[in-house]
Every structure is written in C-alpha cells, then in structure tokens.
Computed example of a mutant assay.
Amino acid sequence: MGRIVSVTVVDLTRPVEQKGFKTHALLDFTTDLATAVISDVKTLTPSTQMYEQASKYFGNGGGTLVVAGKAVTSSGDIGLFMADVHSTNEFYGVTVILPKAEQATYVAEVQKFIEGNKLLGVIEVNGTKDEVVAVLDGTNSDRLVAFANSIDVQNGTASGVAGVCMPQDEGSITWGNKVVTGIPASGYSASDEQALLAKNINYITKEKGLIITQFGRTTSGSNADITRSKDWLENRCAEALTSTLVNNKKVPFTTPGMAMISSSLNQVGVQAVEMGMLDSFVVLTPAISSIPTNDKANRVLRGVKFIATLSGAVETIEMELQVKL
C-alpha cells in the first residue's frame, strides 16, 4: 500500500449459498453413536454394522460421510433423530441401518422425513421377494431408492451403491448396471427379480460374469439420477436468480432486465449440459408488453421458464442379428 493512496476493497459479490447434492449420511437406528463427519473408518468400531457399511461406502468411492446412531425405541424417535442430525449436518442422500423385524415401520418414517426435506433415501430391504414387496408396498416415492437383499441382515448393499453413485456429478451417471465392490448378488431367482423390478424395487444380480445393479429406480418408477437432476436444477435456478436480484442495483422491467434474468439461468443450463445432465435447454422470459401493470406495481415477474431436455441413459439394449449365407 502506498503512502499517499489508500484503497479500501468492498466486496459486493455476495455469493449465494449452494445446496450440496453429493453429501451422504449413514444413520443407525439400532445403536447409539455420536454424530460425526468422517472420511474413513478409522474412528469406527470394527465388526459393527456402522463400520461394515461405512467400509462399503468408502470402498466404492464414497466421499465424506455423516454418521450417527440412536437405539430407537419407537417409530416416533426416527424422525426426531434424523431431524436432529440434519439440523447441524448438511446431507442430501441418506442410508439407514435397521432391523429386519421393524423394516416396514422404519421405512415409512424414513420416507416421511426424506420427502419433507427433499432428500434422497438409498436403502436396503431384507427378506424374501414377498417380504420385501410387503415392506415397500404403497411407498410410491420419487425420493426412495430401495435395494432388495434375500439375506436377513444388511450387508451394505445400499451403502455400496451410494458410494459408487453419490460422489458423481448430478445427472452424469445412471444407477443401473454399476459394479459395486464387495457386494454379492442379492440371491433371488430370475422370476423373483422380474417381480421385484415390476414393483420398482432394485437388486444386485449376476450378468455375463459381472455383479451389477439392476437398476436405480425410485419406488415411484422414476430413477435416482432424474430425482437428483430435478433437485439440482430447482436449487441452482433459485440460487442464480437470487444472486441476480441481490448483486445488481436493480433488475428493471425492460429488455436489458429480462436479459439479466436469461443470462443467469443460461449459466445454469450450460453447466448442466457440460455435466451430462441435459441434452439441451431453453430459457424464456415474458415480453415486456405482456407484463401486467399490476405485476409491475407489485414488482413481481411471472412467466419465466426454464425448459430442460434431460440427456437420459441407455440401460438395456434390444438388437436384431441377421445371418445370411
């Protein structure tokens, strides 16, 4: 700094907080465990369910993990416990450790929580095909991704899948046909697998010598990557528009004002295309002449649209093989 000139820097950028969609939590409903944020299993007790499942998560590429446990004694404790952990630790994805005998009750409470907080639940449900179907009957949720496992005790199937998929850019990866290290096939017959798939329940299977996920459906019949994509787009659009309103002197009801809106949303769309989430997008703002005088008086802009075409994902292939002499 010179002796005759003093410069004061005033930062007017005011960055908007961005919601994360790669963060994950592993919550145990069977054992008390203090909440912690970990990047490996060194602080966990070996041979416990938490240790084994966290190992599957990290062993498949998972990043930072929020872990916590509470030996719940009633279904009402579940939502309170999850809310308490979420209040001090941001996470978007959540996998739970629960006893087979209480699966139906606990899964219902988990569904309430993830839908109320716009999260993504990646869970393992244990039992025969009929038992698993009974647990998940009526869930019909875009936010619940369930993997069936024929054994009676969880082996970390959902944690392993989350480790593979959650760290990847939103919309860049399908959850189907993924190899999950350290996780065996779920152990169902071919007919049981088809019955599970018809109910939008996923499983691990053997295909051409590979142990892979089939698929990444939500219990509503949508897909985990689509839910993540929609949540990402909703939040990034809101963040971009908030930043535009806060970091400009004003956004006028003029052609340049509408261009400011379009520019901020175009940045979101370009990023989504680069991530592999979108094939294309269109941003529309209303013509100035069409904006009602009352809306101008109330300083409300309506009719802004972001039309996104998802890139989608090929998970199965049908082909014709022609042989001639």
Rank of each mutant, 00 (worst) to 15 (best):
I201M: 01
Y57W: 00
V9H: 12
F81S: 03
I151R: 14
L241G: 01
V16K: 12
Y51R: 06
I114S: 02
G187K: 09
T139C: 09
Q103P: 04
G127F: 02
L241V: 13
E52A: 13
K250F: 12
G160F: 14
I291T: 07
V180F: 04
K206N: 15
V153F: 11
T218I: 05
I201W: 01
S141E: 07
V85E: 11
V66H: 09
E52Q: 15
D142L: 11
A287R: 12
A313K: 14
S39Q: 12
N177L: 11
D40V: 06
A71Q: 12
V246M: 12
E318Y: 02
N202V: 01
T128F: 05
S172F: 02
E193C: 13
A83D: 14
S222V: 03
Q103Y: 06
I317A: 12
F81L: 03
V180N: 08
W175H: 07
S74Y: 02
G171Q: 04
V161M: 05
N294Q: 14
Y92I: 03
T242D: 10
T23F: 06
A198P: 02
V179T: 15
I183F: 06
M258Q: 12
L33E: 13
G116K: 11
N60H: 05
I114W: 02
C165A: 14
V67Q: 09
G62F: 07
S311A: 15
V7S: 09
S220V: 01
E193V: 15
T218F: 03
L26W: 09
L98S: 13
T242F: 05
I78L: 15
K305D: 10
S159R: 01
E131I: 07
T218Q: 05
I4M: 08
G171P: 04
K19Q: 13
A224F: 01
V133A: 14
I114F: 10
N89L: 06
G303S: 07
Y203N: 11
T309H: 09
E193D: 12
G62V: 05
D279I: 00
L196N: 03
G62M: 08
I123F: 14
I261K: 08
S280Y: 00
N177A: 12
P167F: 11
L210G: 04
F91Y: 15
A36V: 00
K56E: 09
